[in-house]
């Protein structure tokens, strides 16, 4: 990994469909070399996959998103890993993070309705032996996701000419 690799990653994260010639020109590499580096980054699983950022609210999808904080009793020999990995297997769970502070794990859970999510949590998560406490917060509105603000504010007009 060097500066050029990092730059390639930034460019792909911002737009994974950028034409390779354009990317190569921008990072000051021959196309072949840029391709080789991207392949290497894919093989090293540094590039996990190419995906779209979707405004689901706008798409009219009624799915609800909730942030669930868990207090967990760590297990001898495994710490938080085994329970976290178990939780991560559920399709409904989109993200799992071990965090510092009052709670131990933070989950992002998506479901069709609030009831579905609540039921999922009470039936599958809260019932696990190691879970000592859960709080469920439903997202009401998304303002920014993956670094992209959702409000379409017009950029302020610049003069067409200036020295």
């Amino acid at each position: 990994m060097d500066g050029k690799d990092l730059l390639i990653l930034h460019l792909l994260e911002e737009n994974s469909r950028i034409p390779i010639e354009e990317l190569a020109t921008m990072v000051e590499l021959p196309v072949k070399e840029a391709e080789r580096r991207i392949r290497a980054l894919e093989e090293a699983r540094i590039i996990r996959k190419y995906a779209a950022v979707i405004d689901w609210e706008k798409a009219g999808n009624e799915e609800v998103t909730s942030i669930i904080a868990l207090k967990v009793s760590p297990e001898r020999d495994f710490g938080y890993d085994r329970i976290a990995e178990r939780i991560a297997r559920f399709r409904e769970v989109k993200a799992v993070r071990l965090v510092s502070g009052r709670y131990d794990l933070i989950l992002l859970v998506r479901g069709r309705t609030m009831q579905d999510v609540a039921r999922f949590v009470s039936e599958h998560i809260a019932t696990m032996d190691q879970i000592r406490e859960t709080t469920t917060q439903f997202a009401m509105k998304t303002y920014k996701e993956n670094g992209i603000p959702y409000d379409e504010r017009e950029a302020s007009e610049r003069l067409p000419y200036s020295f």
Binding site: A155, S156, P160, Y161, S162, F163
Partner: peptide, 25 residues
């Protein structure tokens, strides 16, 4: 550039590379 200002006025869809300032806020 005064003359160009005048020419530019009222034109739609102009891409300006005439600007001496950052486009970032």
């Amino acid at each position: 550039i005064r003359k160009f200002f005048d020419l530019c006025m009222g034109m739609q869809d102009v891409i300006s590379l005439g600007v001496g300032e950052p486009d970032f806020s």
